[in-house]
Design a protein around this nucleic acid. Structure first.
Length: 412
DNA sequence: TGTCCACAGGAAATACGGGGGT
DNA sequence: ACCCCCGTATTTCCTGTGGACA
């Protein structure tokens, strides 16, 4: 019977589809979607796999004084993004507070996250909010007032206060002020035993401090090395087991992803993102997760990165990028000079009736594009034909087209 | 050797917008 | 409603500068 045949074929296909679902629990591919307890579960496994063992040991000895009612000094933590600084520290501080609670030691830990850069004002403001010392102000209150609010809030607290400050050097203008407050002023004015945990991406960060502040800063240092390929393999393996069907992951995939990630950055978050992307690709084609898919996924991630970067960029930056693309097309050369690009930029502004910015800012905008590696630029002297900035656009042609369309449609 | 191009990029000034205090 | 304060964006002003060319 024809129809019966057809029916059983469909049923079979459905069955194999069910059998071969690669992704069992997609939430474990994306940290954002995990609830707190699941995050801790993942963390627990990571730390049980002896990753970041050395760092946790150092942390333990640094804070061991707490249990003897001593006052440990501050702690400066250094490591690149995605090396697990935040994770390890939150995990550790969480354990520490449990321990202190059991021992009846008053401990207050506050996690101030300065991941997105902001001025001194916002940093203090955020801190005040975390301490429950004031409401959130957008503007209009002096720095002094915020400091006083914080001090007032802490006037009666006599226990330990651990301020875990993530990405300290993201405090842009007036950083001196912020650091001086934390290091010099605050400890003198409040009764609490203050322990600062200052996390940063830059190793030379304490040297850029004002000398008078620096002399007050007594710190221990702790360095997080980037994960090596072996660490990443273990981290990925945990994810694979939680999120995917390991049988459907071709041998060598984990090794490949961790090798790629450790070669480039050693960033665990990016490695997991690559795993996730590959898994989605595999799921779409309903096949096993192969090595080729990892390559494809890496490419996709790259493309996405550029596109979201340009989409979320301020309009003037988009316009600058658009002008560079136009200039390159018009000149039919690989290299565009800043003067030509500025001409085209002004033209574009006229076309879309947007007020053009000065040459001065245009230069800065190009530097910014360079920073995001959307273009490469360098300063060249052409003798008596002056100096200029050569702008090279060497992204794949279809990506450039894609970016260009995005920009044009955004502006209109 | 000096000149001079066509910009780079630092510093200071100015404009702007939004919030608080009164 | 008014003024002042703060952070940010942009302009204005200015001082270099590497090397081709005369």
């Amino acid at each position: 019977m024809q129809s019966h045949d057809m029916g059983s074929r469909i049923i079979n296909r459905l069955k194999t589809a069910v059998d071969s679902t690669l992704i069992k629990n997609r939430r474990f591919l994306d940290d954002e979607q995990l609830i707190r307890s699941e995050q801790l579960e993942v963390l627990e496994e990571i730390f049980n796999a002896n990753i970041r063992d050395a760092e946790i040991n150092e942390l333990s000895s640094h804070f061991s004084g707490l249990l003897r009612r001593d006052h440990p000094c501050h702690l400066a933590v250094w490591g690149k993004t995605g090396t697990g600084k935040t994770l390890t520290l939150s995990y550790f501080l969480n354990l520490l507070s449990q321990l202190c609670a059991a021992e009846q030691i008053p401990l207050w830990t506050v996690h101030l996250d300065l991941t997105n850069p902001g001025p001194c004002f916002r940093a203090l403001n955020d801190l005040a909010c975390l301490l429950d010392a004031s409401k959130y102000y957008r503007r209009g209150i002096s720095l002094e007032e915020i400091m006083q609010k914080i001090e007032a809030r802490l006037a009666d607290y006599r226990g330990y206060l651990v301020l875990f400050i993530d990405e300290v050097d993201n405090v842009r203008s007036d950083k001196e002020n912020f650091m001086a407050f934390l290091i010099r002023r605050l400890p003198q004015r409040i009764p609490a035993k203050l322990i600062l945990v200052l996390v940063s991406n830059h190793l030379d960060w304490p040297n850029r401090l004002d000398a008078r502040v620096k002399s007050f800063l007594k710190v221990n240092e702790l360095v997080f090395e980037p994960y090596d390929a072996m660490d990443l393999q273990r981290i990925l393996r945990i994810r694979v087991e939680k999120a995917l069907d390991p049988k459907l992951v071709v041998d060598g995939v984990i090794e490949k992803i961790s090798a790629m990630a450790s070669r480039e950055h050693g960033d665990a978050r990016k490695a997991v993102a690559l795993l996730a992307r590959s898994a989605y690709l595999a799921e779409k084609t309903r096949s096993k997760l192969t090595l080729d898919m990892v390559d494809q996924a890496a490419l996709d991630l790259e493309t996405d990165r550029y596109l979201t970067m340009i989409q979320t960029a301020p309009p003037q930056l988009q316009l600058t990028m658009g002008a560079i693309i136009e200039a390159k097309r018009k000149l039919k050369k690989k290299i565009v000079c800043s003067g030509d690009a500025y001409q085209d930029y002004c033209d574009m502004c006229r076309r879309f009736s947007i007020r053009a910015l000065t040459n001065r800012v245009f230069g800065d905008l190009i530097a910014e594009l360079d920073l995001y590696s959307l273009v490469r630029s360098r300063i060249v002297s052409r003798g008596r034909y002056g100096r200029t900035r050569e702008i090279i656009l060497d992204l794949p042609e279809d990506l450039v087209e894609n970016i260009y369309q995005t920009i044009i449609s955004k502006i209109q």
